Amino acid sequence: DVEPGKFYKGVVTRIEKYGAFINLNEQVRGLLRPRDMISLRAENLNVGDEIIVQAIDVRPEKREIDFKYIP
């Protein structure tokens, strides 16, 4: 289970104008929005990159997770 405030290692699987999709594993995926990329620009991300993200909002009923990148 993903808990708000905890840090996780994930892999960038898709990049859109509104953010990057980060997979923690095959069943868990969330969104890293540009406003939550402190000191990281979306254009510096590539599909396949491994990054550490913090879960900031977890909505299990919608199967949605928002992440924040903190260097």
Rank of each mutant, 00 (worst) to 15 (best):
D1T: 14
D1I: 14
D1W: 15
V2Y: 08
V2S: 03
V2R: 02
E3L: 13
E3M: 13
E3A: 09
P4R: 13
P4F: 08
P4D: 05
G5A: 03
G5S: 04
G5N: 05
K6D: 02
K6L: 08
F7A: 03
F7M: 08
F7R: 05
F7K: 04
Y8Q: 00
Y8A: 00
Y8G: 00
Y8R: 01
K9S: 06
K9A: 07
K9Y: 09
K9G: 01
G10E: 00
G10F: 06
G10I: 05
V11G: 00
V12K: 00
V12G: 00
V12H: 00
V12Q: 00
V12T: 01
T13V: 11
T13W: 05
T13N: 02
T13F: 05
T13A: 08
T13E: 04
T13P: 00
R14N: 04
R14F: 05
R14C: 07
R14K: 10
I15D: 00
I15K: 05
I15W: 03
E16S: 14
E16G: 14
E16Y: 12
K17M: 08
K17T: 11
K17H: 12
K17G: 07
Y18P: 02
G19K: 07
G19M: 09
G19L: 10
G19A: 06
A20G: 01
A20Q: 01
A20N: 01
F21M: 07
F21W: 15
F21E: 04
I22T: 00
I22A: 01
I22W: 02
I22P: 00
I22Y: 01
N23S: 15
N23W: 12
N23K: 14
L24S: 01
L24C: 07
L24T: 01
L24F: 05
L24H: 01
L24V: 10
L24Y: 01
E26N: 13
E26F: 14
E26W: 14
E26S: 15
E26K: 14
Q27T: 14
V28T: 11
V28Q: 07
R29W: 14
G30C: 10
G30M: 06
G30P: 02
G30I: 12
G30L: 08
G30T: 03
L31F: 08
L31Q: 03
L31P: 02
L31T: 05
L32Y: 03
L32G: 02
L32N: 02
L32I: 08
R33K: 08
R33P: 03
R33E: 02
R33H: 06
R33D: 03
P34L: 15
P34N: 15
R35S: 10
R35E: 10
R35C: 10
R35W: 07
D36W: 11
M37D: 03
M37K: 03
M37F: 07
I38F: 08
I38N: 13
I38E: 11
I38P: 09
S39M: 14
L40P: 04
L40I: 12
L40A: 06
R41W: 11
R41T: 11
R41S: 12
R41H: 10
A42G: 10
A42M: 15
A42T: 14
A42N: 10
E43C: 14
N44E: 15
N44R: 11
N44V: 10
N44A: 13
N44P: 08
L45D: 00
L45W: 04
L45G: 01
L45Y: 04
N46G: 09
N46T: 13
V47K: 03
V47R: 02
V47P: 05
V47S: 01
G48K: 01
G48P: 00
G48I: 01
G48Q: 01
G48H: 01
D49I: 06
D49E: 06
D49F: 07
D49N: 04
D49G: 02
E50D: 07
E50Q: 11
I51S: 00
I51C: 02
I51P: 00
I51D: 00
I52M: 09
I52Q: 04
I52D: 02
V53Q: 00
V53M: 07
V53C: 05
V53T: 00
V53K: 00
V53S: 00
V53N: 00
Q54C: 12
Q54P: 01
Q54K: 08
Q54F: 13
A55E: 02
A55G: 02
A55I: 15
A55S: 02
D57W: 09
D57V: 13
V58T: 06
V58W: 07
R59N: 07
R59S: 05
R59G: 04
P60Q: 08
P60D: 06
E61H: 11
E61G: 12
I65M: 04
I65N: 04
I65D: 04
I65R: 03
I65C: 10
D66P: 02
D66L: 15
D66T: 12
D66N: 08
F67W: 09
F67Q: 04
F67K: 02
K68P: 03
K68T: 06
K68F: 08
K68V: 09
Y69R: 03
I70Q: 08
I70C: 10
I70K: 05
I70L: 10
I70G: 05
P71W: 10
P71T: 11
